[in-house]
Design a protein around this nucleic acid. Structure first.
Length: 897
RNA sequence: GGGCGGAUAGCUCAGUUGGGAGAGCAUCGGCCUUACAAGCCGAGGGUCACAGGUUCAAGCCCUGUUCCGCCUACCA
């Protein structure tokens, strides 16, 4: 027996730092550009460069890391492509806020200087999240780290923009877009968050033009939630079939407050059932009104400016804040008796997803991607199975969005981002779109070219991520090896923002969908299932959790709770539970390593399976089963199943039964030859356990791996248990599993008596097992030492049914009657009660089975094996009941006597 | 408005072709048994949201209802 090579408890911090540095310096995360090995690739969802690690990142990246580490163990050439996203609006906001503390703004700096400042900021703080990912254990190929503003990626962005433009899939035009007056930019529809709000519906009378103007009861009443927009109304619409207006002779009304005459038009868009059937039309500030305006050639008057204040077109309201103007307009209408009523009106209001300002639909000249044709192919790729979404309940959501997609507004009026590669000629007005900066106008030869000042939506560049990071538009070996990628792991919150758009761009430019599988995981919530947010104060910082419980425990917790389609509810108590598990593993290794010498035997070398002890054969068989279960769970993204299987096996089979069962052998009680064989199996079981657990708990497994004899180097490239011929097959052994099952049942039966009779473990008991079946009798006889040791017996007799031992508590298990002698200890009343309770349970079960077996339909229609199973069960229960009844009679007789 | 998900032990949740209701934590009882008290041994606890239906058989399949959560939407 060697000295203790392991400390009494696992201390993660030093271990984690040491091994992460080791993995990096040994280049164990590096992918090969070309290789004979099977490729496996994942591109990381690039975190915002402004970001700090939160629970969502932690879950997302731990799952990716589990897959990557698993595939490496399986021998694949693994590429996990890391990087960050320049997050245009978010980053610009952060840097601007920073400038504001110095009393500066970006306009004071100018565009060039401002961009320089952002780059400096990125140099200084952009690495934070990368380092945090490393603390998680993320095994990304860091030498390939990319940034969406890198030169290479910028080149890809330009190329895509120019190609799409020339294919007619990108265009510029004047449309209603979502405008954030705080960020001072247009937003895509997706970037608007709708929130239900208890608003008001204002009913306003627009008097008829001409004579009717003086009569306050004449006119058309319209309803609106945004009365200030009326200043820009250029028509009032009614439905052509609306009977209320069938006899209407007036052709125009006077727009109140502006005293402008506007036409009454008829359009089928108007909903007959809503309000009075009169609709005010504001083409500059509502997408539907814009369409109506086009149909009827209406004037377009923009009354709300890009700064959120009323424009000169708003007359005397010019310069007012839009919300102040709403109040003013309401007041003025009331004074004139034109505000008929104000009803409460719950409706959704759009907010900017970056700063939460109320978004204004506004007319603006912007660039758009014509999404329809791209979206169709993206949907088809999933319909055809080229790309599989897991779990597939997300298919419907994905299709719904793509099938109803609208054009994508991609221009942003900010400075941080990819400036649009379009130039306007000052001489002839020609629009030039090309990848290289032009110096002359190709049409008129003029040199006065002004580049479009807008930048592209950040998601435009991240849509290219799966191929731009691999060197596209160049045809690199990396692309050839790893595109399309194997799996994308992502949260459902960016299914549209990112996944769908990568599908669109990937298919268009690479002719193949970028992923074979898309695994969509849930959100991490707090203990009560609420979304974590700073304002709620329920945020759990992953870094704190790792500090407190260790990274492995944290990772295991995430994996164990990552059931498909269900949110992960995180609480520190759960992590604490899994820290116990990590410590359990540590101590199992500690015990093992006390006995495994440097030159220890290694199963399967030098030991024939047939000669092994029952516990050895059993644990090997279970190991084989568990290896298969864990692998198939990971192959199908059932992370929680894989984690649960390993947890259950390691703790409750390997530790609770196997290690306890082999202790006598390890201490030499069964001779040197037995010990050698068992050491070999123990070595193998521990080795395989470490490998199986490594994707989930990389640090502790690496640490133990290096203490385990007969291993070399890192565990990372170790062979997965089933994959190395040199490790030879571990065979499934149903006989050993069945026999061990019987032994465990008998031992539990004895322990049960001990527990329920409140007998201290230190008091060794004497027991008798009576069983008619000769094979079982032989089994229990052969394993007498094992039973005695695990049930803490001082004597055990195995015999055919016969004389009943006196003063004994009894249990009936596996057809055997167990008598635990309790001479001088037994409380007959307690024992009778115990047996009665047991009998009650059996009777209840038995009556259920009996009812089934007396049902003729069941016997008639159920499959034979199911019927047989019920019959067997009925027989076993009846037999058990009979024996228990006899025992109870005896006890009662003794009590009476 | 449309769509999706959930409702199973006190709590958090598993339950993959329909065939004896499970785990972890918590609770209770007994243990410092020389790997681990971050532990060991044992116990109690559930009309599987509600109502119907299909079936010999339903937590699981179908219909409806209620209550949560989320996504999506140009109805003023």
């Amino acid at each position: 027996m060697s000295s203790h090579p392991l400390d009494k408890s696992y201390e993660p911090h030093e271990v984690e730092k040491r091994w992460y540095e080791y993995w990096e310096s040994e280049k164990l995360f590096s992918a090969r550009d070309t290789s004979d090995k099977k490729p496996f690739s994942i591109v990381i969802p690039p975190p915002n460069v402004t970001g700090v690690l939160h629970m969502g990142h932690a879950l997302n990246n731990v799952l990716q890391d589990i897959l990557c580490r698993y595939r490496r163990l399986k021998g694949d050439n693994v590429l996990w492509m890391p990087g960050t996203d320049h997050a245009g609006i978010a980053t610009q906001n952060v840097v601007e806020k920073n400038l504001a503390t110095q009393g500066l703004d970006r306009h004071a700096l100018g565009r060039e200087k401002f961009i320089e400042t952002v780059w400096q900021w990125r140099e200084k703080y952009g690495g934070a999240i990368i380092n945090q990912l490393k603390r998680l254990g993320a095994s990304c190929d860091w030498n390939r780290e990319r940034f969406t503003m890198d030169e290479g990626l910028s080149k890809a962005v330009r190329r895509v923009f120019v190609d799409l433009y020339h294919e007619g899939l990108i265009y510029r035009g004047d449309y209603i877009i979502n405008w954030c007056s705080r960020c001072h930019t247009a937003l895509a529809d997706l970037e608007v968050e709708h929130e239900d709000h208890e608003g008001r519906l204002y009913h306003i009378r627009y008097p008829f033009a001409g004579g009717g103007g003086a009569d306050p009861s004449a006119g058309i009443v319209v309803a609106t939630t945004r009365p200030e927009t009326m200043l820009g109304d250029t028509a009032v619409a009614v439905h052509p079939e609306d009977e209320r207006y069938a006899s209407l002779t007036a052709t125009s009304v006077v727009l109140p407050l502006m005293d402008r005459e506007i036409p009454i038009i008829r359009d089928t868009y108007v909903d007959l059932s809503f309000g009075t059937g009169g609709l005010k039309v504001t083409p500059a500030h509502d997408p539907n009104d814009f369409e109506i305006g086009r149909r009827h050639n209406l004037e377009v008057i923009k009354v709300i400016g890009d700064d959120g204040k009323m424009t000169p077109e708003a007359g005397r309201y010019a310069g007012m804040d839009r919300f102040a103007c709403r109040e003013a307009v309401t007041r003025d209408l009331t004074e004139r008796g034109l505000l008929i009523k104000v009803d409460p009106h719950p409706h959704a209001i759009g907010h900017c997803y970056r700063c939460h300002t109320v978004v204004e639909p506004n007319l603006s000249r912007q660039w758009f991607v014509s999404a329809g044709p791209l979206a169709k192919k993206a949907a088809d790729a999933v319909r055809s199975g080229e790309t599989r979404i897991v779990p597939d309940m997300w298919n419907a959501t994905y299709f719904d969005w793509l099938d109803n997609i609208r054009d994508w507004c991609i221009s942003r009026q900010i400075w941080w981002g990819h400036q649009i590669p379009a130039w306007t000629c000052g001489g002839c007005g020609e629009l030039i779109v090309r990848t290289d900066d032009p110096d002359r106008c190709p049409k008129c030869g003029g040199g006065e070219l002004v580049q479009e000042s807008d930048v592209l939506d950040t998601w435009f560049s991240s849509a290219l991520w799966p191929f731009s990071t691999m060197g596209w538009p160049d045809e690199t070996p990396l692309l050839k090896t790893f595109y399309p990628t194997s799996t994308l792991v992502t949260g459902f919150d960016i299914l549209f923002f990112w996944v769908a758009r990568m599908m669109m761009m990937g298919i268009h430019f690479m002719k193949e969908a970028p992923f074979k599988d898309v695994y969509v995981h849930a959100l991490v919530r707090d203990e009560e299932g609420k979304k974590m947010s700073k304002s709620k104060g329920n945020v759990i910082n992953p870094l704190d959790v790792m500090d407190k419980y260790g990274t492995d425990a944290f990772r295991f917790t995430l994996a164990a709770f990552a059931a498909q389609g269900r949110d992960v509810k995180m609480s520190e108590r759960r992590v604490e539970g899994y820290r116990h598990f990590i410590n359990k593993l540590w101590n199992a290794a500690r015990l093992s390593l006390m006995h495994l010498a440097d030159d220890c035997p290694r199963f399967p070398e030098g030991a024939a399976a047939g000669a092994l002890s029952l516990p050895d054969r059993w644990i090997l068989s279970r190991l084989r089963q568990v290896t298969g279960d864990a692998a198939s769970a990971l192959d199908t993204y059932r992370f929680n199943d894989a984690a649960g299987t390993l947890y259950q096996f390691i703790w409750h089979e390997f530790c609770d039964w196997y290690l306890e069962a082999i202790k006598p052998t390890l201490y030499g009680q069964n001779g040197e030859a037995e010990k050698e064989k068992t050491l070999g199996v123990l070595w193998r079981a521990l080795r395989d356990i470490l490998v199986l657990l490594h994707p989930f708990a990389p640090f502790v497994t690496e640490e133990i791996w290096h203490k385990l004899p007969e291993t070399s180097g890192s565990i990372m490239p170790a062979a997965f248990p089933t994959d190395d011929p040199a490790l030879a097959p571990i065979l499934s052994d149903p006989g050993a599993e069945a026999d061990m099952g019987r032994l465990m049942a008998v031992i539990t039966g004895i322990r049960n008596i001990r527990g329920e009779m409140n007998i201290a473990p230190s008091l060794a008991l004497s027991a008798t097992i009576q069983i008619a079946d000769a094979d079982f009798r032989a089994l229990f006889s052969d394993q007498r030492d094992l039973i005695m040791s695990l049930a803490r017996l001082s004597a055990l007799s195995v015999e055919a049914p016969g004389e009943r031992p006196a003063a004994a508590a009894t249990a009936v298990v596996e057809g055997a009657t167990i008598f635990v002698s309790l001479a001088g200890i037994i409380d007959f009343a307690l024992e009778a009660e115990r047996l009665e309770k047991e009998i009650g349970k059996i009777k209840k079960e038995l009556s259920g089975v009996s009812r089934k077996l007396s049902n003729e339909d069941f016997l008639d229609k159920a499959p034979e094996d199911v019927i047989q199973k019920s019959r067997d069960r009925h027989e076993a229960l009846s037999e058990k009941l009979g024996k228990l009844d006899v025992n109870l009679e005896k006890i009662r007789a003794l009590t009476a006597g």
